[in-house]
Design a protein around this nucleic acid. Sequence first.
DNA 1: TTGAAAGCGCTAACAC
DNA 2: GTGTTAGCGCTTTCAA
Lengths: 339, 339
Amino acid sequence: MKKITIHDVACAAGVSAATVSRSLNLPDQVKPAVRAHVIATAERLGYLADGAARALASRRSGAVGAIVPTLDNPIFATCIAALQQRLDEHGRVLLIASSGYDPAREARDLRGLLERGVDGVMLVGADHAAAVWHLLASARVPVVVTWTTTGAPPGVPCIGFDNQAATRRLVSYLLDIGHRRIAMIAGPSPGNDRATARVAGVREGLARAGIDWPEEYRVERPYSVAAGRATLIEFMSMPRPPTAIICGNDHLAFGALAAAAGMGIRVPAELSLTGFDDLDFAAHATPALTTVHVPAAAMGRQAADCLVAAASARAGPASVELEAPVMLRDTTAPPPPIR
Amino acid sequence: MKKITIHDVACAAGVSAATVSRSLNLPDQVKPAVRAHVIATAERLGYLADGAARALASRRSGAVGAIVPTLDNPIFATCIAALQQRLDEHGRVLLIASSGYDPAREARDLRGLLERGVDGVMLVGADHAAAVWHLLASARVPVVVTWTTTGAPPGVPCIGFDNQAATRRLVSYLLDIGHRRIAMIAGPSPGNDRATARVAGVREGLARAGIDWPEEYRVERPYSVAAGRATLIEFMSMPRPPTAIICGNDHLAFGALAAAAGMGIRVPAELSLTGFDDLDFAAHATPALTTVHVPAAAMGRQAADCLVAAASARAGPASVELEAPVMLRDTTAPPPPIR
DNA sequence: TTGAAAGCGCTAACAC
DNA sequence: GTGTTAGCGCTTTCAA
């Protein structure tokens, strides 16, 4: 028993292949009775369309690609989950790749996606290898940049939020409640405009208040619980330790929180801690983590809509700026009185 | 400027299209000098192969599909991350779908993947709609079942672990340290053989010890932090509350942990709690969560290898049983003395 | 080792 | 509304 093609269905239904094709794809161009009969026949025969042939003839694949830094961080998984679900509703499938924060690998993976004929691509951040933009341009495939609102080439829509403003607000809040010695455990900046913007936000917030930000209060670490743990110990072992630590993401903050507990440092009474992402568990940590809520699911959904629109009509894809509110919870409080 | 095809490259390089194709796909069937020249020309022209045409002619797409219940649970995201990475190393791409634990949606999504011509499919669990197995069989596509070692149709390899044995071991441990009133917050059983097996493991462990398991000590809840929270309150409000609660996954356990804290119940002194999955944060919860380690990344990696092997050779794909060790941490201890 | 030619299964003009 | 006819861009026998 060999593969069933559109011809087999056509023969069995007593119509032409074109009519079968139309019954399936352009239902209202075919007489209802015929269409019903064709569809029933296709079903009876267990016909499964050949996507390759379809894509070759119609010049679109119905697939969308996405490249994220990693799927191991739930914040990206959440975005991808939403993207996938929305694409599914549009009858599209999702091709996914992860770069591991490596620009070269990203370019290579993008090539792979493009060769598979994706009708659109979602990227995280605006900072990518030149090859990425070249490939995208020469393949003439719609792109959407997420997680940021700035830095994308002209014509590329962004669906994101303002990373810099978010940490700036965090700093304002900490200053308001009395902190002056604020440190930051930032994420890796190479190829990561979000991490860079978050640092800039802290710097900006401090500068606006006329507060100096000593070099040693700012370190760059991989996004991991272990790094957060180790770095908190470093910070708190300084002769003049910070009273508040801003972490580049929630993983770092969880590590810092655990290390503080281990060192017997009470959070928030003795030390304030903030995260970034608002993962599911942030609200359930003990104490509950003050953090910035990243609208991951919303970005995924809107990216899907944007790409589907761009693929069908030439619906001028507009950029969207989403909210990234500070979630004040229980890891922040005024600093202890100065001794 | 239109799309560059293999013919353009052939012309520019002064060879035939066949030679270009071979230079790219079967490099050692072509004289090194010619090959080098062809590849350079392709590069210079910015040639990007058309996957649809390639797939149509060669009858394989280089894509693998995976359907997971949800990507929003990091345990599946971790598996997918590993699967994707390994496929990437093999030059394959990953098409991903999520069923939301809905068998009908799973069948529909599988159809979508199959129509896109995936060369293999990874499924979670062995309990699927009949349509799923039919589709797979008639499309003659290799499948691999993960997360379990039993229940798959003959000939379908499983790369998983023994869910039942895992919770049985958990129960043995709890019995050993003195617990007799053991409750369970199980996950939704419909279409979920893992959840069912985990309940069976608890039942078996208790039965082996000759201990009765009252109906009211076993409830089924959605896999969410909120459900864990609410259910713990229910359990602890019973006239005769359990001294230990086994949660169907870590999310439920986190919720239970938070609720216990809220109720002023000390864990593990007054109540023992266990999870299942061993998410990143399990080790960093306060107290650190005793749970079953699910080898999500290992399953993803091995599933990738299995599918790639099955697609190229007919390498009899073998089932693999992985370890799912109990991670004893700080949420379990002997029950309080009987008053 | 290379080239010529025949499709792969489907869609999209274009006729009828 | 439906059928006919060309390809879509590539791989792959088969000959040379």
